[in-house]
Nucleic acid binder design. Structure first.
Length: 458
RNA sequence: GGCCGGGUGGCAGAGUGGUGAUGCAGCGGACUGCAAAUCCGCGUACGUCGGUUCAAUUCCGGCCUCGGCCUCCA
């Protein structure tokens, strides 16, 4: 089995062959740090985290770059609205982002470059583009000249005519062509700015990714990922900048995750159907949010629903139940072939999850300790590739939201269970059922096993 | 208008030119003091109309329908 990926460039699945057979390079567009991460931001972070985990199992070395965009007009606006310094906002939002996605079991990328630390590289790239005739200066701006690139639009499959016809905004007077886009723009004294050959200014939106991917992965690299909404204009423009500046191909495989909907409707602030990761973490464990996201194929639109989240929790309940019931030690080794095969087929996470269920059934049916250990190891290893099932099962079942209107403490629950066990031994089933009913009313479900009684919060 | 994706059983959601997805829900059974969990069994699913084929949910075409993008957006 070999890795196959759907490449937006060719609109088909292709066998993945890295430039260097022993070292894969991947770049994924990270967040603009002006506001809390929402589930739409979380999807690519989770999806490409799975791809990263998969790649590290298939290749000796993987460099995964995910940037932080900390210079942007949305950030400037936020600073103005809040009356706070920009660096305070970006530092705080970055910290929140890291905290949130850690709850989602997302591994840190190899390198997480910040845009503001790479202004010099951006300026150098812009100078090259001007020198090569792909960009021009106008009224303190530097613009990329779209007509100067013959095959502009190849990723999003748009022609120049379409883009001109489709222009919805007023074209800035300094643009030679309405499709031209900004590489550098002037800053007023109240805005962040850096000295440049074109005066004090700040970079346009797209140039940072070209500059940083080039620095850390080289001019031509393997995989570039992001949300489908970035295909045009962001990724199209990244390609234009990098290809024209470097005179070399840019990313070889382009991967895009589908859009996120909420309860069947497009997620948007005006509809109010907008969840931040933090809000969801108050409702469900991060692991359930993660599994929920992975329960449909990354390329499909994903409909986020309360029911879906509930099902993801139920799935993890089932899997952790199997792990908890198997009283054997097991060290996860390599993930089973069928799970790897599913993931290697363009990251078919729903199929991989189906295999998780089959592994759990096998574990539940295993009788000898050897069989149990084997099945448990397979399930744990599979969970590892997907980034789930890595915590202690008891911890999973005891989860409750932070600052939950504190119900019974763990020790109070265990005391009641002991009382019930004593009643059962005395055949006082009226009393034991009364205790069980009492706990159910408090959201605690008991399960009796030969080895003893376990409990879980619902 | 241009360009993209979709329409699978009650629900979610893979996949395939010809027997099984998987899970949840439901029904029956085993187990249990009773439950829960677990195991076993149970479902005339592939928008529509045509075409190709020995055979189509799967390939091709028309139609209906849903959603997205077209320089704010993961």
């Amino acid at each position: 089995m070999a890795l196959v990926l759907y490449n937006t460039l060719t609109r088909r699945k292709e066998a993945f062959e890295p430039l260097k057979p022993d070292h894969v390079g991947m770049y994924v567009c990270g967040p603009t740090v002006y506001d809390s991460a929402h589930i739409g931001n979380a999807r690519p972070v989770i999806v490409f985290d799975v791809l990263y985990r998969l790649l590290t199992r298939l290749y000796p070395a993987v460099t995964y770059v995910r940037n932080i965009t900390d210079v942007d007009d949305k950030i400037n606006q936020r600073a103005k609205d809040l009356g706070e310094p920009i660096d305070i906002i970006t530092a705080r939002t970055t910290k929140m982002f890291h905290d949130d996605i850690a709850e989602l079991n997302v591994l840190p990328p190899t390198i997480e470059p910040r845009a503001t630390a790479h202004i010099n590289q951006m300026i150098a790239m812009i100078e090259t583009l001007i020198a090569k005739g792909f960009a021009y200066e106008a009224e303190g701006h530097v613009l990329f000249s779209v007509p100067s690139m013959s095959d502009y639009g190849s990723l999003s499959r748009r022609s120049m005519d379409e883009m001109i016809a489709g222009a919805r905004v007023e074209v800035a007077p300094y643009k030679k062509n309405s499709a031209d886009f900004v590489l550098w723009k002037p800053s007023t004294p109240d805005l962040p700015g850096w000295d440049s050959p074109w005066g004090r200014g700040r970079p346009g939106w797209h140039i940072e990714c070209s500059a940083m991917s080039g620095q850390y992965l080289g001019t031509t690299f393997d995989i570039h990922g992001g949300g489908q909404d970035l295909v045009f204009p962001h990724h199209e423009n990244e390609i234009a900048q990098s290809v024209c500046a470097n005179g070399a191909p840019f990313a070889r495989y382009w991967l895009h995750n589908g859009y996120l909907m909420v309860e069947g409707e497009k997620m948007s602030k005006s509809l109010g159907n907008f969840f931040t990761v933090r809000e969801l973490l108050a409702q469900a464990p991060g692991e359930a949010i993660r599994l929920c996201m992975l329960s449909s194929h990354y390329h499909q639109p994903f409909d986020w629903t309360a029911e879906g989240l509930k099902q993801a929790r139920a799935t993890l309940d089932r899997l952790y139940t199997a792990l908890r019931s198997a009283n054997v030690d097991a060290e996860p080794g390599a993930a089973p072939i069928e799970v790897m095969a599913a993931l290697e087929d363009d990251l078919n996470t729903p199929l991989a999850i189906a295999h998780l269920h089959e592994l759990a059934t096998a574990l539940n049916k295993a009788e000898s300790n050897a069989d149990k250990a084997k099945a448990k190891a397979a399930l744990l290893a599979s969970g590892q590739v997907l980034g789930v099932l890595q915590q202690d099962a008891d911890a999973w079942f005891k989860w409750q939201p932070d600052g939950a209107a504190a119900g019974l403490s763990d020790s109070e629950i265990e005391a009641l269970i002991q009382a019930r066990t004593d009643a059962r031994k005395a055949k006082d089933f009226a009393e034991s059922d009364r205790i069980r009913k009492h706990l159910i009313d408090l959201g605690i479900i008991l399960e009796d096993f030969p080895q003893g009684t376990t409990w879980k919060r619902v």
